[in-house]
Design a protein around this nucleic acid. Sequence first.
DNA 1: TTGCTCCTCACGTCACGTGAGGTGGC
DNA 2: TTGCTCCTCACGTCACGTGAGGTGGC
Lengths: 278, 278
Amino acid sequence: VFRIGDFARIARVSGRQLRHYDRLGLLEPSHTDRQSGYRYYRADQLPRLNRLLALKALGFSLAQIGRMLSEEVATDELRGMLSMRKAQVEQSLAEEHATLRQIESRIQQIEEQGSLRDYDVTLKSEPARSFLAARQTFADMDEVVRALRLVVARGKSELRSNVRQKLVVVAHSDFEDEALELELGFILAKPVNTRIDLADGVTMMIRELEAVDTLASVVRAGPSDQTHLAYGALGIWMEANDFQIAGPCREVFLELPFADPASDHVVMEIQFPVTKAA
Amino acid sequence: VFRIGDFARIARVSGRQLRHYDRLGLLEPSHTDRQSGYRYYRADQLPRLNRLLALKALGFSLAQIGRMLSEEVATDELRGMLSMRKAQVEQSLAEEHATLRQIESRIQQIEEQGSLRDYDVTLKSEPARSFLAARQTFADMDEVVRALRLVVARGKSELRSNVRQKLVVVAHSDFEDEALELELGFILAKPVNTRIDLADGVTMMIRELEAVDTLASVVRAGPSDQTHLAYGALGIWMEANDFQIAGPCREVFLELPFADPASDHVVMEIQFPVTKAA
DNA sequence: TTGCTCCTCACGTCACGTGAGGTGGC
DNA sequence: TTGCTCCTCACGTCACGTGAGGTGGC
């Protein structure tokens, strides 16, 4: 028989660990002295301890190990627990792989630009929304800005502020196209029957803005004419992390623009639906 | 400005998280109401929050992120932190890979044998030891057992029990060799000047038993004639986990054998120095 | 005024590490 | 008898989740 210290040294664990396993009932000493409380272990308890340590090294929790060590576990249950754990490890392996690539691209960013002063891309998902909007084709950015001002003005006057949530621009044309086909409108807290006639017979009507599972998002605050920098950062990020564009891009204005006529400061979130490239 | 709930929804974090980041000073609300304690955030705080979340996704602790977000970090420090984190992820990636393979081999074990009732291999290291032993060549196992009995008897009579620690057999011949070349002796708590003459002019002398960095170990308790089962388990484990034998095998007796003449029960640890195969 | 949102404690998580303060064993 | 080993609390770790109990805001 060994006292706890010797037993611990043989198995290369701490005494504290052995006391912990004792308290959890995972490995009780073969005998505990009533008076002194000293724990005594026998050498033939090492196989059980080693099984415990082996399962721990596989990443099982002590509670799970408790079940796996007990007499009454069926083979099927054991196999099930191992398979589940296998799936978890495979999952986390894939995630760590992606993390590694992101770290590498950050390091590269620093090498090239001397800092992290760039945009930070996050992945999120969006539920479906009620969307009151009009789809139009524009020849240039000036036209877009004029239309946007009109939408904002009409939205303010015709939608109650608890219904009107966020100004959104959905891009239905690629960036290579000559003409811009955009949808301008408001996300609403709840569907309403309102329609809003803009000039030229263009009408904002309600529709469902689709839910998106995975979208890459960047938030930027600053002058509106530097939006392209954020798009650039998104493009680099997607390439570095093997994502592909999977739907029309959205610009969500987190603050209503044009509030201060003297500045063109905007706070917007640029969202690209994406999928993992094969 | 947003109240905490709206700000949290936009960034897809919990309010609790925002309060936590506030308390840690990582992201303070742009304004906190003195009377009600309500926190108010501005949209242009989102870039900072998103950087925080991006760094968190890379696996940095909040304390590290605190430094990385602060104004006074030099580019070099940032690069250093990223490189360190990269090394950590690479390390854990390799470990998870090994874990995955071990889980797979356990599942296979269950498929083939219907249970885990086998030996559990653990990796450990051994420091150098004082070793009082004699090296001999044997023709068969009966000879070995006779010599071992002699070593045990002499050890008991000539070594004080606080000096004598464990009976060890070191195998200097391969298993394919006809003759067995073994070293039988005791690990000692401290070097002593003792020599012990066994029969036939064979003498136990003190030497240093080398330290081993990585050894694969199995403990078994049971009749001595079933030791080969443990060796089999070790062989399978080494193959499944890409380890190679890197030195002479040791059998460490955790209890002195031959204590009860009516049984041949032994508790021993079988240790193979190993290295990772290329 | 009624919900809704927000507030501040404070416990729980997981597997121990790390003292503090005290006692048994050779 | 003196160290050495062991004992039992009990706090700390890390990033929050999850109530409890109470109050401000539209």
